[in-house]
Simulated assay, not measured.
Amino acid sequence: MKTKITLLLIILFSTSVFAQKNGLEINGWTNINTFKCSNPKFKNSSSVYSFTGNQLPNISVAVEDFDCRNKMMTADFRKVLQSDKYPNMIIKFLEFKKTASNKFEAVVEVKMMTVARKYNIEFSNYNNSLVGNKRLKFSDFKIVPPKKMGGMVYVKDELDLVFSLETKD
């Protein structure tokens, strides 16, 4: 029950944050705090995505463009994702279907560094944007969550990928 309430709050929060805009955030937790890394260049892009026909979106996002609103956290985030070696995160839509009047399901491949994983993600249509989120794990991508201060501060394995994609009518 607690998980469902948390998921509902994330969806509601993400729809209010991303209304009518592109947006991409990675939200995570440490043992003492939360963090949110967003990509302002993606948010400010003028891209509009189509989910009809055979040509589904294939989105490449520069890891170096993520900002965690804390200089040290941003540097650690980029280092963990090895942005110097693997400059882009790829989000590729493999399947997409309407399930209800305002709801959709997609199979999405997320590639970080050399590992690509497929996820089923539910989306909602909100003001000409598709809003969705998925709980991932660093370990899904063979990434060991970072630790600081001799392990006294550590990042938890789970993180949420939250995004909104402006769509064509």
Results as ranks from 00 to 15, higher is better:
Phe51Glu: 00
Asn44Glu: 11
Phe51Ala: 02
Ile26Met: 10
Asp169Phe: 11
Arg117Phe: 02
Lys118Ser: 06
Asp157Tyr: 12
Ser45Arg: 13
Lys79Pro: 01
Val144His: 12
Arg135Lys: 14
Leu130Asp: 00
Pro145His: 07
Tyr86Asp: 01
Pro146Phe: 11
Val153Lys: 12
Asn102Tyr: 14
Phe13Glu: 00
Phe123Met: 04
Lys71Thr: 14
Asp140Ala: 02
Arg135Phe: 09
Leu56Ser: 02
Ser139Pro: 05
Gln55Met: 08
Phe66Asp: 00
Leu136Trp: 02
Asn88Cys: 08
Gly53Pro: 03
Ser83Lys: 15
Trp29Phe: 09
Phe77Val: 08
Phe104Ala: 04
Gly151Ser: 03
Lys168Asn: 04
Phe42Asp: 00
Ser47Trp: 13
Gly132Arg: 03
Pro87Asp: 02
Lys97His: 10
Leu130Ile: 12
Asp160Lys: 10
Val153Pro: 00
Met1Thr: 15
Asn22Gly: 03
Lys98Ile: 07
Phe51His: 09
Val17Gln: 12
Gly132Tyr: 02
Asp67Val: 12
Glu64Thr: 13
Asn133Ile: 10
Ile26Pro: 00
Lys92Ala: 03
Gln82His: 11
Val63Arg: 09
Asn58Trp: 07
Asn58Gly: 01
Asp157Lys: 12
Ala62Tyr: 10
Thr30Phe: 06
Asp67Asn: 14
Glu122Tyr: 12
Thr99Ala: 02
Met113Ser: 06
Tyr49Glu: 00
Ala75Lys: 15
Met72Glu: 04
Phe96Gly: 01
Lys71Trp: 13
Ile91Leu: 12
Leu9Gln: 14
Val80Pro: 01
Gln82Val: 11
Val155Ala: 03
Tyr119Met: 01
Leu56Val: 06
Leu165Trp: 01
Ile32Lys: 15
Val107His: 03
Asn58Ala: 09
Cys68Leu: 04
Ile143Asp: 01
Lys148His: 13
Ala75Leu: 07
Lys147Leu: 05
Pro87Ala: 06
Ile90Pro: 05
Asn128Gln: 08
Ile5Pro: 03
Lys21Gln: 11
Leu9Met: 14
Asp169Cys: 03
Leu56Asn: 04
Phe51Val: 05
Lys98Tyr: 07
Ser38Arg: 11
Asn120Met: 09
Ile143Met: 07
Phe77Ser: 02
Asn88Glu: 11
Lys92Gly: 00
Ile10Glu: 08
Pro57Cys: 04
Pro40His: 09
Met112Arg: 05
Asp65Trp: 10
Asn88Val: 15
Ser101Asp: 09
Ile90Val: 15
Asn31Gly: 02
Ser50Thr: 11
Lys168Cys: 00
Val108Leu: 10
Leu8Cys: 05
Val61Gly: 07
Met152Ile: 14
Pro40Thr: 06
Lys43Thr: 13
Lys111Tyr: 05
Asn39Ile: 09
Thr15Glu: 01
Ala116His: 06
Lys147Pro: 02
